[in-house]
Computed example of a mutant assay.
Amino acid sequence: MPSSRSALPSPAKSKSDDATRAGIQSVEVGFELLESLAQAPGALMLKDLAAAAGMSAAKAHRYLVSFQRLGLVLQDPATTRYDLGPSALRLGLASLSRIDAVKLARERMADLLLQTGNTLAIAVWGNQGPTMVHWNEAPQTAPVRLRLGDVMPILSSATGRCFAAFMPHESRDASRMAAMIKDELATIKKLPAAAPAEMGDLPRTAAQVQTMIEEARDHGMSRVVHSLLPGVAGFCAPVFDAQGHLAMGIVVLGSVMTMDTRWSSPQGQAVRACAQQLSADLGYRGPSSSD
């Protein structure tokens, strides 16, 4: 007689089977309609919405009837177009209110460290300017003596340049940014005319600052080479929130001897990709910053 123990399903198999059986396929299929509406620039006609979700109009209509009852979808009686409803808005706002942007970014640092092999940091705009709030130092890289809470210069750090390039002009902090740039330019202009070639990355005029900003916007991230510290290069990519505000910058720093300093470098591209995904996770739906 077989033992009662041998007749029991194995825990691993039971969990696997439960995971397979737990899903409701119709819910997953219907979600494609909501996802298509979320990705669309505006309200959609039934046929366009169905096509975007990859289903027939008749099938899409059945789901939409239920979604309307739940308030997830609304139909304009004049145009017959469908759009997201108040229940979808409440769900979205509830989700956004529970997101800790810096915490979300910190959770990505371990994987990003493996990709880049270089020191990483997270910076936010503080009372005094761009401020370091998280630091992941990579082994066997050039030591960078920065501390949490340090306020970064605008013109000589990748972090500062990122905030200068991607902070909205209408931001309440824009005047503070402009004052910092003015003060730093005045200091840079006092440097000896025969400054070493390593300082050539520093802008010395307002026109060069504007060129620096436009270059960062073109590449979707900022860059410095030798400017902050001799022999050190860095990239900083912007992370935007659901309102399109600059939430933080993701920074990678390393020795110019071991880190590729080209705009197309693997380290820079990895940081930019991470920042773009974080922006999407925070609800940002702005234009892609790809080259």
Results as ranks from 00 to 15, higher is better:
residue 3 S to H: 13
residue 4 S to C: 10
residue 7 A to M: 14
residue 7 A to Q: 15
residue 8 L to I: 08
residue 11 P to F: 06
residue 14 S to G: 07
residue 15 K to P: 01
residue 18 D to K: 12
residue 20 T to L: 14
residue 21 R to V: 12
residue 23 G to H: 08
residue 24 I to R: 09
residue 25 Q to N: 12
residue 28 E to T: 13
residue 29 V to H: 03
residue 30 G to I: 00
residue 30 G to R: 00
residue 31 F to C: 03
residue 36 S to G: 04
residue 39 Q to Y: 08
residue 41 P to K: 04
residue 41 P to D: 07
residue 42 G to V: 05
residue 49 L to A: 03
residue 51 A to E: 07
residue 51 A to W: 01
residue 52 A to D: 03
residue 52 A to F: 04
residue 56 S to F: 05
residue 58 A to Q: 12
residue 62 R to K: 14
residue 62 R to I: 04
residue 64 L to M: 07
residue 69 R to V: 09
residue 70 L to M: 12
residue 71 G to D: 07
residue 74 L to Y: 05
residue 80 T to S: 12
residue 80 T to N: 10
residue 82 Y to C: 02
residue 83 D to K: 13
residue 84 L to V: 05
residue 90 R to P: 01
residue 92 G to I: 03
residue 96 L to V: 13
residue 99 I to D: 01
residue 102 V to D: 03
residue 104 L to I: 05
residue 105 A to W: 00
residue 106 R to Q: 14
residue 109 M to N: 04
residue 112 L to E: 00
residue 112 L to A: 04
residue 118 N to V: 06
residue 119 T to V: 07
residue 122 I to S: 01
residue 122 I to V: 14
residue 124 V to G: 02
residue 128 Q to E: 15
residue 130 P to G: 05
residue 132 M to K: 03
residue 136 N to M: 13
residue 136 N to W: 13
residue 137 E to S: 11
residue 139 P to H: 10
residue 139 P to K: 09
residue 140 Q to A: 15
residue 141 T to M: 10
residue 141 T to L: 06
residue 142 A to I: 15
residue 142 A to F: 12
residue 145 R to G: 08
residue 147 R to C: 11
residue 148 L to F: 10
residue 153 P to Q: 05
residue 153 P to M: 06
residue 156 S to Q: 07
residue 160 G to F: 02
residue 162 C to H: 01
residue 163 F to L: 07
residue 165 A to G: 03
residue 167 M to P: 02
residue 167 M to D: 05
residue 168 P to N: 07
residue 170 E to N: 12
residue 172 R to T: 14
residue 174 A to E: 09
residue 175 S to W: 11
residue 177 M to A: 07
residue 178 A to V: 08
residue 183 D to C: 09
residue 186 A to Q: 14
residue 187 T to V: 13
residue 188 I to E: 00
residue 194 A to R: 11
residue 197 A to T: 12
residue 200 G to P: 03
residue 202 L to Y: 01
residue 203 P to F: 00
residue 204 R to A: 11
residue 204 R to Y: 10
residue 205 T to C: 08
residue 207 A to V: 14
residue 208 Q to H: 10
residue 210 Q to N: 13
residue 216 A to T: 04
residue 216 A to Q: 02
residue 217 R to T: 04
residue 219 H to R: 08
residue 223 R to A: 04
residue 229 L to E: 13
residue 237 A to L: 04
residue 237 A to T: 02
residue 238 P to K: 02
residue 242 A to P: 05
residue 243 Q to V: 09
residue 244 G to I: 09
residue 244 G to C: 11
residue 244 G to H: 11
residue 246 L to V: 08
residue 248 M to Y: 01
residue 251 V to P: 00
residue 252 V to E: 01
residue 253 L to Y: 04
residue 253 L to V: 11
residue 254 G to V: 06
residue 255 S to G: 15
residue 256 V to N: 07
residue 260 D to Q: 10
residue 261 T to L: 06
residue 267 Q to L: 03
residue 267 Q to E: 13
residue 274 C to W: 01
residue 278 L to I: 06
residue 279 S to G: 05
residue 279 S to L: 03
residue 282 L to C: 04
residue 283 G to C: 06
residue 283 G to H: 03
residue 285 R to W: 07
residue 286 G to Y: 03
residue 289 S to L: 15
